[in-house]
Amino acid sequence: MADYVFQKEKIEELLGGMAKNYEVHAPLLNAGIVRFGKVEEGGPALAKLDDYSNSSVPPKELLFPQTETLFRYRLGTGGIEPKVPDAGAKVAVFGIRPCDAQAFAIVDKLFGWDYPDPYFQNRRKSTVLIGLACSSPCSTCFCTSLGGGPTNDEYLDVAMYDLGNEIYLKTVTEKGDELCKSISDLLEEASPSHLEACQNQSKEAASKIRRSIDTNGIPEKLPALYDNPFWEQFSDRCLGCGICTYLCPTCHCFDIQDEVEVFDGRRARMWDTCMFEEYTRHASGHNPRPTRKERTRNRVSHKYSYFPTNFGVIACVGCGRCIKYCPVNIDIIDILEKSIAVEVKEAG
């Protein structure tokens, strides 16, 4: 695999070069919110690379849109027209953080088991991830506790390091190689000093991560704490707004709805959240998760126990968004720490 550099001031030129062969998505700054979107003339401005440690809305929406048509139909005449995205399209995601890329590798497992999901998988196949290492993580980041790290390139196709005036770029996969070759006229060769600067940055960035959790044994412990009264304390101030799940890069739950305009209809899926009351309410009115206590327990247990039981990996990458954006400061690390503590007490 190869490495390159380019001048940071030439970022727009670089994205322009990419756009010749790829549909390019990058972090955009719109009304103070950083969110990935298609780079378009007249659209929101590109966020500066040091404007965001992490985007407010995770780029999961690029592979799993907030609302997505599954198929269209015309009432009365029959016939169903699937709307599956083209796996052969070429999409580049520029500036994705390592944790958000890791999240794709986690939900890959769910969208791939039993009945592979062609909507997610085709987008995944067509997408090249050009990641950006974090040099100044947020105070809520804890990626190093979940097998990741601010400069982890494991789940990227191309890894970028912001070295001040220059961006260092390293290809990780063949897909990434192919992309870099397509813009090679805009890239310069890297030197050993660049590599050294990156290595220093990696060490420094990791040392800036302030929060952590020892996840060892948590998946096995949580089911035993199902009836513990502390779930009530953890959730008593929860507003049930769902932010912690909508903004979580590994949350993948959805609803399916039909929409009809005279005779033209579509069946679509849209993000849903286990923090809402209707999510599990039966048609009889019975609800197996009637209060926020059960719903908070499910959110945490799903990520830290049920998902690892099914897929062998915790469904959290430590991006910290659920902590940062919860309006009432409910903190998943805090919940996990207290869970561990309680068990120790019971065992002792």
């Binding site: 769910l110 999901d117 609803d255 849903d272 286990c274 999510y279 049920y306 039981t309």
Partner: peptide, 11 residues
């Protein structure tokens, strides 16, 4: 088909 999330009892 085990994707939308809502039907789980435990894992």
């Amino acid at each position: 088909i085990g994707k939308c999330g809502r039907c789980n009892v435990g894992h």
